[in-house]
Amino acid sequence: MKRNIVIATLTAAALATGGTVAAFAAGDDDATATQRQTDTNAQVAADRDDDTGADDRDDDVSEDRTAVSHGGVTAADAIAAALKHTPGTALSADLDDDGADAWEVNVVKGDGTEYDVRVAPDSGKVLGALRDTDDDSDADDRAELAAAKDARTDAREAALAAAAKGTVTEVGLDDDNGTVAWSVDTVKDGKQGEWKVALDSAKVTQDHDDDA
């Protein structure tokens, strides 16, 4: 009885001063055990909140060219803008994710000069065109250029064809054992895909070259 009176007195005093009530009594093991269990449950819940891990698993994929998701300018749009600014044959388009967040379209003009045209992913505005002065093209490069010039399906059309498979993040030429085709990378539902687009028919097939 005396113990209960002491607890009641302490509780009333704590409430009157706005403090936190911590009811305990010497030798009251049940109350102590209950308090410890409550503290443990609270700590476990807090740890779960801090260690979801779900977002961390998606970090690499969500980095996948975030400019596409919030910019709206597709690979096909970027190629069209680049060719309007710098007429020629587009050989590749790549969404640069090195911090600049811009499409980089490689264009070869009629006189053979090569330019890297940068296109803003949010507006489609051409940010600039830098001439590539490296004269290191080999026989394969020349063959790919000739194939692209003669192709019924250009880089823009290849990007449009592959867009049915996901968001296009890169398009370029690939010579596979003498057969040149457009190689297109896509992202859909957090998964990356690689596709071949035929130069003559725009037929899209999955690229199994890199499969283990």
Rank of each mutant, 00 (worst) to 15 (best):
G172L: 06
L160M: 13
V204E: 12
K165I: 06
G190I: 13
A159W: 01
D185G: 01
W195R: 06
V204I: 14
D176V: 09
K165N: 13
G172N: 09
A181S: 07
T169V: 12
T179F: 03
V171C: 06
A202G: 04
K203L: 12
K165S: 10
K203W: 02
V180A: 05
E194Y: 14
G178Q: 08
T153G: 05
K196G: 08
G190M: 08
A198H: 08
A162M: 10
E194D: 15
T205N: 15
A164G: 13
Q192H: 12
L160R: 14
G190Q: 09
W182R: 03
K191E: 12
E157T: 12
V168A: 03
T205M: 14
D189P: 04
A181T: 00
D176I: 03
L173K: 05
A159Y: 02
V180H: 03
G172M: 05
W182Y: 09
A164Q: 15
A161H: 05
A163T: 15
V168S: 02
G193H: 08
T169E: 09
V180G: 01
A202W: 04
V184M: 10
Q192W: 13
K203P: 00
A159V: 11
A164D: 15
V180R: 05
D185M: 08
W195T: 04
N177K: 08
G190K: 12
S201V: 13
T167Q: 11
D150W: 00
L160G: 02
A164R: 15
R156D: 08
V187D: 03
A202T: 07
T186S: 08
L160A: 12
A198W: 02
G166N: 13
G172R: 09
A155D: 05
A202K: 11
S201C: 12
T205F: 14
T169Y: 00
T205D: 15
A161P: 03
T186E: 09
A164T: 15
E170M: 06
R152A: 13
D154Y: 07
Q192T: 11
D200V: 08
A202P: 06
N177D: 14
K196S: 11
T169Q: 10
A155Y: 04
A181R: 13
A159M: 11
A163R: 14
A151R: 05
A202H: 07
A198S: 14
G178K: 09
A159P: 00
W195V: 08
V168Q: 06
E157K: 13
W182M: 04
V168R: 04
A163Y: 01
E194K: 15
W182Q: 03
D175A: 07
A158P: 00
A155N: 02
G190A: 05
D174P: 01
T169C: 00
V197P: 06
V180D: 05
K165W: 04
E157I: 07
S183P: 00
V197R: 12
D174V: 00
E170C: 02
D200L: 11
A181C: 04
V168I: 10
D189A: 11
K196F: 14
